[in-house]
Amino acid sequence: MLRISFIFLIIAALLTTNKVLAQDPQFSQYYSAPLYLNPALAGITQQGRAGINYRNQWPSIAANFETFSVYVDNNFDEKNSSVGLLFVNDKEGLVGLQSNEIALQYAYQVNVNYKWVFRPAFQVSYTSRNVNFNKLVFGDQLDSNGNTGNPSAEQFNTDWKVNYFDIGLGGVVYSARAWIGVSMHHIREPNQSFLGESSPLPQKLSIHGGYLIPLNTGYSKGETASGARRNISPTFNYRAQGEFNQLDLGMYFTWDPIIFGLWYRGIPIKSPEGGGSNNESLIFMFGVTQKKFTIGYSFDYTLSNLGIQSGGAHEVSLIYSFKWGDPRKPSRSVRELKCPLPMIF
């Protein structure tokens, strides 16, 4: 009975407490998940692109989180427009909470002048959430030796799911060296309760940016005679959602075909509830670019009280670039100002 009570206590907390469900999944390689970060980044490479992201957070404990996303986007020169399609699946390991989101994005490109470009964008999305009751173990499935594996005779309502539409907005401004973007998701603050109560999903704000510092190669700043990139890119990503906020601060080091990254996640000047430290993790990233493919791996070393015994977080990204249209026509990124964001080409 104690175990049953504990299980249902966890379910009740997950299904009815805004604080637990108020945080969207996150990717440490945020510029390798561009459409998830900001709809204005759809088509920003001025050609076609497809990508996959996978994250496993706290794999050493039962309450781990797995997030998978896949996306495709393309730019249409003649229309100054880009479209993107994004799918995200997120699963919580302990009681099988799962969400599936599909989003359609549109971005419009405005050349402010020969030095700056502005891209406003919006997205519409549909999300379905449910609970997997097969993850639960009840008292009649236990004996003195542990779990019998037999089905439970417990009667309960397994139809716990919620579906909703949502809206997001975004924008990015960039020059040849600098960029800054803002995105706002969950503008409708849809009701996410499984029990018919009021549990609005808080709006999520992200402010992100960076600066490209080209290195001297003896041929041209930031580039070798063969076109290989050589640069450092300090970046940041600040997120706020409900009572939660966080900051990623670090940099990419690009030495084609190799890319390294190092970030700190946390807000050390802010004390969390109950005291202690607000240092969350150090993030180490390694990537390789080969022709049209870029693959990256990162590891989050946990600094919080949860500790490294949680297993940290592992993340893998894969990006493929392609040209859709007249192959004889050079891409817009060759003819016009190119966005300096790393890990997206």
Results as ranks from 00 to 15, higher is better:
9 L>T: 13
95 V>H: 02
89 N>P: 02
121 A>D: 00
313 A>N: 09
94 L>Y: 13
195 L>D: 15
341 L>P: 03
126 Y>H: 06
304 S>I: 14
307 G>H: 07
215 L>E: 11
280 E>N: 09
167 I>R: 12
29 Q>R: 12
77 D>C: 01
227 G>E: 08
254 T>V: 14
185 H>Y: 14
63 A>Y: 00
223 E>T: 15
72 V>A: 12
289 T>W: 07
332 R>W: 15
61 I>A: 02
143 D>G: 04
236 F>N: 09
11 I>Y: 10
120 P>W: 00
301 Y>C: 03
233 S>H: 07
20 V>C: 09
324 W>I: 11
140 D>K: 07
270 K>H: 03
36 Y>C: 13
66 E>W: 05
216 N>P: 05
73 D>Q: 04
25 P>D: 00
72 V>C: 10
166 D>E: 00
150 N>A: 06
135 K>Q: 11
330 P>G: 14
321 S>L: 05
295 I>W: 00
342 P>D: 04
281 S>L: 08
114 Y>T: 05
198 S>Q: 13
193 S>Q: 00
190 P>G: 02
237 N>T: 08
318 L>G: 02
327 P>G: 06
322 F>C: 01
45 T>M: 07
213 I>A: 01
275 G>P: 09
327 P>K: 08
55 R>P: 01
158 T>I: 09
275 G>R: 15
343 M>P: 00
110 V>D: 02
326 D>R: 14
234 P>C: 06
93 G>H: 03
40 A>I: 14
183 S>N: 07
295 I>L: 10
52 I>K: 05
155 Q>N: 10
144 S>N: 11
301 Y>L: 13
15 L>H: 08
8 F>G: 05
16 T>P: 00
21 L>V: 07
211 Y>F: 11
338 K>H: 04
141 Q>P: 07
184 M>D: 02
6 F>A: 14
279 N>L: 05
9 L>V: 10
165 F>W: 08
162 V>G: 00
226 S>H: 13
69 S>Y: 15
154 E>P: 01
230 R>D: 00
329 K>M: 12
11 I>W: 07
154 E>W: 08
87 F>A: 03
151 P>K: 06
250 G>Q: 08
150 N>R: 14
44 I>V: 14
66 E>A: 12
294 T>A: 08
321 S>V: 04
36 Y>R: 03
24 D>A: 10
37 L>W: 01
42 A>V: 11
210 G>T: 09
97 L>Y: 15
86 L>W: 01
263 W>R: 05
16 T>D: 03
176 A>F: 03
155 Q>G: 06
328 R>S: 11
33 A>K: 09
192 Q>N: 01
343 M>G: 02
199 S>D: 03
66 E>S: 15
109 Q>Y: 09
16 T>A: 10
293 F>P: 03
224 T>Q: 10
31 Y>W: 07
231 N>S: 07
238 Y>P: 08
94 L>K: 11
81 S>M: 13
329 K>N: 12
151 P>D: 12
46 Q>S: 12
31 Y>E: 14
163 N>M: 08
143 D>H: 09
295 I>G: 07
